[in-house]
């Protein structure tokens, strides 16, 4: 019995270069958010100053973190799911079921990536600005790109089966 919580992130499979690079990008992204939010507080507390665009940027970064995090969670096969069968892993058809699940997820993500692209096009046609000079559609590009990559990842997982999970 370990004292640590059964933390889904603690079991680290042999990190490939891709996963390592991805980890560092994700880590840098959230640290940047912390520093931006903290900078806003410190500037205000010490110098009575605030950057009017900081809050909009902080909020938009939540969307980015959501999509990037979901993409990374896909890579580790760690999405929230309801498994009704407690012995699902031990069934003979487990690998095929997992492929089918990945295929359905890939189809959904591809569809959403397409509609994300439609949203970007809609926004390019007379939309708003995120920062002065930076149009909002640039930020919304995360939807087609993120869900597109997620579709590829799920698609790949529907071809190669999951490594046998250790209990």
């Amino acid at each position: 019995m370990s004292e640590q919580p059964a933390d889904p992130q603690q079991e680290k499979d042999s990190p490939s270069l891709l996963h390592r690079v991805e980890s560092h990008i994700l880590g840098a992204a959230i640290v940047a958010l912390v520093l931006l939010a903290a900078w806003q507080i410190i500037r205000r507390a010490l110098f009575n100053e605030a950057w009017i665009h900081a809050d909009g940027l902080i909020r938009q970064s939540v969307l980015w973190l959501a999509v990037l995090g979901a993409l990374a969670a896909t890579g580790r096969r760690k999405h929230i799911a309801i498994e009704l069968d407690p012995k699902a892993d031990q069934r003979p058809w487990a690998a095929w079921k997992s492929r089918l699940v990945s295929l359905i997820s890939a189809a959904f993500c591809a569809t959403l990536a397409w509609y994300g692209w439609r949203l970007v096009e809609l926004e390019r046609d007379g939309g708003m600005e995120l920062l002065p000079g930076l149009p909002m559609w640039c930020s919304l590009l995360i939807l087609p790109i993120g869900f597109g990559l997620m579709a590829l990842r799920f698609g790949w997982q529907s071809i190669v089966a999951a490594k046998a999970e250790t209990p």
Partner: peptide, 21 residues
Amino acid sequence: VPQNDVIAERTFRAGGVSPIP
């Protein structure tokens, strides 16, 4: 000042009040 309300922010800053979004 409301977040993103650039006109209000610039006005109060120019008027010598600290705008807090």
